[in-house]
Design a protein around this nucleic acid. Sequence first.
DNA 1: TTTCGCTTTCCTGGTT
DNA 2: AAACCAGGAAAGCGAA
Length: 782
Amino acid sequence: MKGYVTKEENPQKHVMMADKQYQLRWNTHTSSFVNLLDQFRTQELYCDASLACCGRVYPVHQVVLSACSEFFSNVFTQASASQQQPLVVVQGAGRDEVECLLEFMYTGQVTISRVHLPALLRVASSLQVKGLLEAQGLQQKMKDQQLEAGVKDIQFIAKGIDTQFETEVQSRQFQAICQLNVRVSPGQLETEAKIGQREEAECDMVKDEVTSWNTECERNERLVEAVSGFAKNTRPERHLSRMAPKTYDSNSYDVVQDIVPYESRRHETETCDTLSSIMPSHDGDTQPRLSPATNQRLSCTASNLKSPYSAQRVKSPCSSPITLTTHHGPFHSLCETKEEPPDDWVKQEEEEEEEEEEEEERMEEESSWLQQSDDMKTLLGHAPPTSAPSSSPHTFSTPVITPASFIITPNTSQLRRELLKPLPNLSPDLTCPTPFPLPSSSISHHTSPYSPPQPVSPHLHFSPSYHYSPLHTSSSPYPHSVSPRSSPSSPRSLPHPVITSAVERAYTKQIPPLMKIPSPSPPDVMPTQEPPIPQTTQFINDDSTYPYSMTKERSHPSIIHTRLFVPPPPFPPHPRPTSQPFTQTVVHSSESNNDAPLNLSRERRRGRDPFLGKIATKRKRRLRGPKCWEYLARLLNDPTTNPFLVRWENRSNGVFRLVEPAIVAQRWGRRAGKHANEALTYENFARGLRYHYATGALQPVSERSFVYRFGPKALKSLQENTPPALILDRAPLSSQQQQETHSSSHSLPTVLTSMSSLPTTVSSTFYPPMTPSPASHSQSVT
DNA sequence: TTTCGCTTTCCTGGTT
DNA sequence: AAACCAGGAAAGCGAA
């Protein structure tokens, strides 16, 4: 502050100082900036928008997505008028695609398997993600065609709770948010899938990317053409029939428009399996024979196949991961990055295997849920309801997409709340759970008042609507009128305190602890669906026992602890193979499976706190969890948490500060044990820290709030787990330290001063090993 | 099964 | 007065 005053009040001095100029440069600024932005996303800090897909909500930053996508730029620009956080519901894209795209937009690269590439490019094309749209001419062509066709036929589905916003959106001709109610016959899917397989078999990896891309573009062009034709003709089925006259089998798929569609991975997998089983081989072109039940199932699910490449995912022998990297693309308008070369294939294969494992786990969960769902059995095994439901006015159309379609609502928190509802809470007459259980009160059918969808043609698909319980009803598992669950974004961006109801708290208590593998639970106790609430829910103590509310920190007035209880940020489920700070195993042990070493990156992806990785003990090489001070040391050693959660006050003396004590306490409290409840308060957490005053691991720093100091025990542990080369100098020891030092007959070097060097070379049992992270606070002044 | 280290909760009292 | 810290007491958990 003084510097500014001097500058302005004494220009002469400023000029004199200008003679000697210094260039301050943060060497790793670029990569650090990118990494930190991605960390902000994964930790849901400063997020001001959300993407929703397949039942998940991804907090994002408008600036990043706008920089990476013209579509998002337009959306956020126009949605900014509502002064609420926009939520973009990406329909027609799978969870994997969205997560990969987010990773690509935030880090500039993503590694995916080859079979997933076409779907990713398709979604990227729809979202106009820079860097993935290298064929700018084609992109522009498609865009022009879409705009031209969209004048009449691109269905406008911008809907929101706020009527004013809806009106505003409509008045602005919100063309970017569109829905193409066009579908492709399953026969076409097969044909294109076969084409794609032959291409994959013939081409090398690079060529394969190009061909897949071209095939995708051609297909999109045909779709645009079809829509355009639909615009000019009132008989769209003609155009659509011309699209695939050879493959359309009216006998097999003539009930398509009556099938209730829904989109989910479970369903897609079902479809892929079905297609795989019936798909003719390369050398044969026999028509598949389908039983009526299978026919209907396929009809149902094929309508939701987002791309013909979904079938390829089953049949294609190619599964090599592909790393998509941009050197001039989306994010570089914000910050240029020096891309690191992708990891070696072995590591990628390991990542692939992990992904497959996770996928299998997910499938198992979903299949178990499926078995429990009588409604689903009814759907898959019998004819689904062929008429549109019903009397409920709370309906909306689930689009069947070929290009991704989007719904924007300004009421993020309310919609998010509904999106995160467990699927079984859907209305009983809903035979197909949807990944987008939008709140009925926020969504109105585009033909109002409600009228059942009228079949137009076998190809034009009007998704049957379904019921959804309106908000603030007793059927809702959460009394939202009392506890509107807010966005999982940072409290900085969502300063709305939310109150947790008893029901919701009881629900959150059912979530298995972080360090335990959730045991199979009966469905009435533990939803087999992925628990959506705890990691995305903000809540506070409704007992008013949380004393650290809106308190200005004494020594740091800029830091305000809000009343919000922010749960530990969910660690990203998406793979981050190349930019993952932690890529190695904490400890290596040959113990049983229970003591298997924890892979931090896997822990992070699986929603577990990577800083809670176990530590090998000396005795019997057992594994134990970190102690609270060890946990803090890890947080201090990681650029994703230092300085956001903790930071050094005096590194050489081992003095550190809890920047976000409530969050740190809560993250710590969510580890194993019966105390893994929703809220370990800082008050209790601090008591645990004070316990270690006696053990020597920590020392108090008097008269300073949230400030502690590592004691000789911690120093000793650091010393033992730190290579001597990194031990730089001696620490100024306190009297107590000196006494203990003398008693142990050896000096305690300062390893804390070398902590910044640790990530580069150390693979200790104390610190999670890190790849050379550019964000390791190695800012240098040149 | 017991012991022990550690965590968590609750509490009182003191300091800022 | 509120926020925070220090520390005692007790219970619980998990590893040894």
